[in-house]
Design a binder for these strands. Structure first.
Lengths: 189, 189
DNA sequence: AGAAGATATGGAGACGATCTCCATTTGTCA
DNA sequence: TGACAAATGGAGATCGTCTCCATATCTTCT
């Protein structure tokens, strides 16, 4: 998919500086508050260079998002390998709340990006969704979880949690959503 | 809160024309695709007039959002008066999905607005949230619903549904979320 | 090492959208 | 109807985005 052309040494260096800076802004939630020109200066490159590497804000965001998703997917895989299916799912979802809580800025940035409909995040999101889908599928196979509600619904709920990070009582409400989802998923007997 | 100064006749007329146009764009989802200047022309007023009435895009959005929310709140009140508490809640939430489905553009617009963190919608949102809170409280009082998860969690889930309107399998997933929330809310015995 | 060719750079300036300002028009009230 | 206040509109200032290309930097070949 990514037909990497061999990149010149200085080019790679700049590209990486750009991503590193972007990651910081992503985390601090200032990703959208900074003029794109200034961002280039901040990373120590000219505007032209910035635009060549990342034609749009979204393209830049995508690059940062990638790492993030990879981490989360690893966690999902690890849980799936070490816990019973239903516990793995529960632990992962609870952990997501912790994660979002710990990276408020990042969550805000992502939510904005998604709502903007950029679509550039689609690939990264797909990976994350796949991880959740696997988790749910395993739990369904284990018999602890109903099979008439897909993983997509869980993703939506997660999205709602991430998008509402500015609510005064966020943490409690986020935990509440997870509780509802988890209890709702329990196979009705 | 709104200390309405008596508005001159032509001013009121323009203001209303502006809101009417905005509502159309809101519904068609083009609210963000149109240059603000052009929007003024479209509504048949000068840019200056537009800016005087609504200093920002968000201010304009707020005005439109108000009507929308009022409708939904009425529905909630009506359901609460005519159905048992738990059915009222269920019907309202299911109805929200229908409503969002029927007004895709509006949902997209709102989601974008919220994610952007404009905050201008806070007041309108509060009204909607109050309606949901009342619905949940009544259901809790009726004993059909657990009391350890607040209405805020339901709002988050709703938000997730609205924000993800571009998912290919949206309708089914949205219904899934509502199912999870409703089943999750049922008082565990 | 040094020259030729390929690749990448930076930032001036074109462009396009937002918003301000005030001379003019329109409504209101006595 | 005259006088005053309120509202208007659009020309142009302002500011962020993005393009373009003369210059600088890497790489490769001899």
């Amino acid at each position: 998919m990514t037909a990497d052309k061999p990149l010149r040494a200085d080019a790679r260096r700049n590209r990486e500086a750009l991503i590193a800076r972007a990651r910081e802004l992503f985390d601090s939630g200032d990703f959208f508050d900074l003029r794109f020109d200034d961002f280039a200066a901040l990373a120590g490159v000219g505007v032209g260079t910035l635009y060549r590497h990342f034609p749009t804000r979204e393209a830049l965001a995508e690059a940062v998002y990638h790492h993030e998703v990879a981490t989360l997917c690893d966690r999902a895989r690890h849980l799936r390998a070490t816990l019973p299916a239903d516990e793995a799912l529960a632990t992962f979802l609870r952990g997501m709340v912790d994660h979002i809580d710990a990276h408020e800025g990042l969550a805000r940035t992502l939510a904005t990006l998604m709502a903007t409909g950029s679509g550039a995040l689609a690939e990264g999101s797909r990976a994350l969704e796949q991880a959740v889908t696997d988790l749910v599928a395993a739990a369904v196979a284990g018999g602890a979880v109903r099979d008439d509600v897909g993983a997509g619904a869980v993703m939506m709920a997660l999205h709602g949690i991430g998008a509402a990070h500015d609510r005064p009582d966020w943490r409690a409400e986020a935990d509440g959503v997870i509780t509802l989802v988890l209890d709702g998923l329990r196979r009705p007997r």
